[in-house]
């Protein structure tokens, strides 16, 4: 895809998509969205990056092995469920903390951590697959 126009505009689009994906992920608890959709959008961004500037370049931009990101996602998702061991309740019981930051209170909760885990898994896996298919080469 050696098109100057595409290569120039792609990083911009990718950046917008990544921001959008995080936004969709974080507000998923209250409006449509969530970790899965967010992850898909982010992975699409990676796919566009891969198509515009090549898989190797995209991998370099990502820095971390995408599959490891996926592993990390499952890990923290499981970990967020394990936390309730300390509260004397069953697996995956949600724990909510409200952080007081000045005037607003920011909710921190295990479901949110869980959703971030989902995001990581989807992002990592789909990016890995898309980049592998794109690059034609084995991962480094």
């Amino acid at each position: 895809m050696n098109s100057l126009i595409f290569r120039t505009i792609a990083p911009l689009i990718v950046a917008v998509m990544l921001v959008f994906s995080v936004y969709v992920c974080l507000r998923g608890h209250n409006e449509p969205g969530g970790g899965f959709i967010g992850g898909l959008i982010a992975a699409s961004a990676m796919a566009i990056l891969g198509m515009s500037s090549g898989a190797a370049e995209a991998r370099r931009a990502l820095r971390i092995d995408p599959l490891a990101i996926a592993g990390f996602g499952v890990f923290i998702a499981g970990f967020s469920g394990l936390l309730s061991l300390f509260t004397g309740s069953p697996f995956m019981t949600s724990i909510w903390l409200y952080l007081e930051l000045g005037q607003t209170s920011v909710p921190l909760s295990t479901p949110m951590v869980f959703d971030i885990g989902v995001y990581c898994v989807v992002f990592g896996t789909i990016s890995a697959v898309a980049l592998a298919l794109e690059g034609g080469e084995e991962e480094p």
Binding site: F6, I13, M17, I48, M51
Partner: peptide, 9 residues
Amino acid sequence: LLGFLATVA
């Protein structure tokens, strides 16, 4: 966003 992706692909 995604329509763009599909078209590019």
